[in-house]
Write a protein that binds this DNA or RNA. Structure first.
Lengths: 359, 359
DNA sequence: CTGAAAGCGCTAACAC
DNA sequence: GTGTTAGCGCTTTCAG
C-alpha cells in the first residue's frame, strides 16, 4: 500500500520503460532486457545484477510494451476471430470455446464480427489490416462479404475457417459433416413413424444450405416426394423459426415433425408450437442442430445434433499454430481440410406422431 | 487476378513496408507516410505524387503496421474486454453489443475472459500486460480474482466496470439499479396475488447479491417473514436454476412464485417445472432478470426485467473514450459512477396463483 | 559478464 | 512540396 508508485506526483503517469528500470538500477538498458525478456538468455548474467533488476522492475511496476516487442518481429500472441454473427448463441458458445482454448495456448482473442450491415463490412477490414494478429479464425459463412473474402486471401498470416460450408480457396478449413447429422435426425424421425417431415432453415448460409441439401437428398434417395411448402426458408434467429413454423402449420396438410437447421430456429419453433396450443412431441416433433447449451433446458428438452465444437476449435487452432511455427520454411503448406462428424442427441422434443399415418 | 502479388515467387512473403512503397514510387518514405497516414496532413502534397503513392500501395497490397504506429504513441483502436464468463448468455449478448458499439466508434475488441479456473487468472494478466489496448471494459463481478483487481488499479489506461456490483475503487463504473428491478418484479407478483414467493440466485456475485438483498429488504419493509428455505443459492447457470427449483418444490410449503436473479436461472427453473409436471404460470409463476434474447422465446415466454444494455454499454464506452481524449490534461478525472434503471417486461410466465391463499 | 549501437515500421518535427 | 532526421520501447548483434 505504502509501496505504491506515486502516480499522482509525477503528473501524467507514463508507464515505466526499460530505460527507467535501467537508470534506476544503474545498468544499461540492454542488460535489463536480457534479464527481463524471459528468454533463457544464452548470455550469463551476474546473479546479483539479475536480482536487482528484477527487484526494481517489480517496484516500478514495470510491464514490457508488447508493441515494441512485436515490432521486433515477435509474436503478438493475439488471434483474430471473425464471427459472422455474435448474436447467434451457437457462435457465442463457439467464441467461448475458442477463447478458452486459445488462452490455454497463451493466446488472446481479438474479436471482429461480420454483422451483415454494409457499413460494418468496412470495420471488418480493420481486424485484418490490423494484422498484429498472429492468425485469423473465421467462424461461419462470411461469403456475403466479398471484400472480406478477398482480404482473407492476401492475409499475411495463417487463416482457418470454421463452419464456412463453402470452400474458401487458399485457407484452411474445419467443417462438420452436415450430411451425417441431417441423416441421423431423419433416420430417427422415420423410425418414430413420421412421414410428414418438414424443414426450416436459412438458405443463404452455405453451412446451413448443406443441411437443407442433405434433407432434400434424403427423400430423393428413398423416392419419397417432399410436399409443397415443406422446405421453408427463414432468418436464422428465434423469430425466424417461429414464423416458419406458423407457415408450416397453415398448410393444408401440416407436418408431424419439423427439422430445424439450427437449435435457435428449433427454439423459436418450440415457442410458437406452444403458443399455437400444440404439445411437443405429442402433436409435433421438433429437432434442432448444434446442441447449444440451451438445448438441454428448453421445454421440452430438444432432440438435436451435437456439434463437436471443442474438437473443431482445437483442430482449427492446431492447424493455424502449426502453420505459424513452420512458416519460415515453406511458403505455403497447402490447405488443410478437416471434416468432423456430429452425433445425434435424443431428448424429449421428438416422439411418435399421435395420428398414425398409414403404415 | 493477373494483378495479384506473386507471393510465391519472392519466397517467404514479407508484408510490404512503407519503404517498399517509397522505393517503388521513387519518393522518400516520409512522403508515403504523409499520403497514407490518413491524417488530413497539414502539409500539401502534389496531387500527382499522392496518386502514384496510392496506386503503388494498392498494387503492393500495402497495409500499415499498427504495432509501429502504436509505438509512436498513436491509438491502437483496441478495447480490451474482460468478461467473467462468456458462457453466460447475458454476457455473450453484452459482448455483442459492446463489439458493435465499439466498432461504430472505430474500435475492435480484444477478448479476455476471467473464467474462474485458477490457471486462467494468469492468462488474464496477458490482456492487461498486453496493454496495446486503449481502454479496458470489465464485464461482471471479477472480485474473485484479486490479482486482476490489483492489476486493474495500476492499469495505465482508462478502465470502466459494468455490472460489477461492488465498488471497485479507482475505476469508472456503470451499473443497473438492481433494487428497482427487484422491487418491480415483487410488486408485480404481489399484485397478482402471490404471497409465497421464493428467490433463487448466486450469492457470490455482488451484482446478483444486490438483487438478493433487495428481495430480502422488500419483505423486511412490509414486515412479512420469508419462510425458511425460500432464499436459495445456486450456480448461475441453467442447471443451477433447475436444482434450486427442485429444492424449493421439496419444501413442506412450496412457493407459488419464484423470482430468479437471472434469466438463465429462470430458464433452468422453467425446464424443471415442466419436468415436474407443473404448469407455468398456473401452478407456478417464474420471473427472470436481464431480458436476454431468449427470454421472449421460452415456453412460456418469460416475465423479466429488461436490462438497458445498449444504454449501459454506450455510457461505458463514452466514459472511457472521453477519458482517453482528455488524458493528457488532468492526471485522473475522478471516477464516473453511473446507475441506470431497468424496467419490468411482463410476458407469460407469471399469473395469479391457482390456489388462492387467504386474502 | 555487460555496454554500445543498430534497427523493427512508422510519425513528426525540422530542413531545404 | 518533399527529403532528412529523430526517435517510440524493445531485442540483438557486436564489442569490449
Amino acid at each position: 500500500m505504502e509501496a505504491r508508485v506515486p502516480a499522482g506526483i509525477t503528473g501524467v503517469s507514463r508507464p515505466p520503460t526499460m530505460r527507467d528500470v535501467a537508470m534506476e538500477v544503474g545498468v544499461s538498458q540492454s542488460t535489463v532486457s536480457r534479464v527481463l525478456s524471459g528468454a533463457p538468455s544464452r548470455v550469463p548474467i551476474a546473479e546479483e545484477t539479475r536480482r536487482r533488476v528484477i527487484e526494481v522492475a517489480e517496484r516500478l511496476n514495470y510491464r514490457p510494451n508488447p508493441l515494441a516487442r512485436g515490432l521486433r518481429g515477435a509474436r503478438t500472441m493475439l488471434i483474430g476471430a471473425i464471427v459472422r454473427d455474435i448474436t447467434d448463441p451457437f457462435f457465442a458458445g463457439a467464441i467461448e470455446v475458442l477463447s478458452s482454448e486459445a488462452m490455454k495456448l497463451g493466446y488472446n482473442l481479438v474479436l471482429g464480427h461480420a454483422h451483415t450491415r454494409a457499413e460494418e463490412a468496412i470495420a471488418l477490414r480493420a481486424i485484418l489490416e490490423t494484422r498484429h494478429c498472429d492468425a485469423l479464425v473465421v467462424l461461419g459463412d462470411v461469403s456475403d462479404q466479398p471484400s472480406l473474402i478477398s482480404d482473407l486471401h492476401d492475409a499475411t498470416v495463417p487463416v482457418v475457417a470454421l463452419w464456412q460450408g463453402s470452400r474458401l480457396q487458399g485457407v484452411h478449413s474445419v467443417n462438420v459433416d452436415n450430411r451425417v447429422g441431417t441423416n441421423a435426425v431423419l433416420d430417427h424421425l422415420r423410425t418414430l413413424g413420421h412421414h410428414a417431415i418438414a424443414y426450416i432453415g436459412e438458405t443463404r448460409l452455405r453451412d446451413l444450405k448443406e443441411r437443407e441439401d442433405a434433407f432434400v437428398d434424403y427423400f430423393g434417395r428413398t423416392g419419397i416426394a417432399i410436399p409443397d411448402g415443406y422446405v421453408r426458408h427463414a432468418r436464422n434467429n428465434h423469430g425466424g423459426g417461429g414464423e416458419a413454423l406458423s407457415a408450416l402449420l397453415a398448410l393444408p396438410n401440416p407436418p408431424t415433425a419439423v427439422v430445424a437447421s439450427t437449435d435457435v430456429l428449433a427454439i423459436g419453433a418450440l415457442h410458437t408450437a406452444h403458443r399455437s396450443g400444440l404439445a411437443v412431441p405429442d402433436d409435433l416433433s421438433i429437432t434442432g442442430f448444434d446442441d447449444i447449451a440451451m438445448a438441454g433446458f428448453t421445454v421440452p428438452a430438444l432432440t438435436t445434433v451435437r456439434m463437436p465444437i471443442y474438437e473443431m476449435v482445437g483442430a482449427a487452432l492446431g492447424i493455424v499454430i502449426e502453420d505459424l511455427e513452420t512458416l519460415a520454411d515453406r511458403p505455403s503448406a497447402g490447405e488443410a481440410r478437416l471434416m468432423l462428424k456430429p452425433s445425434l442427441v435424443i431428448r424429449d422434443s421428438t416422439g411418435s406422431p399421435r395420428i398414425e399415418t398409414r403404415q
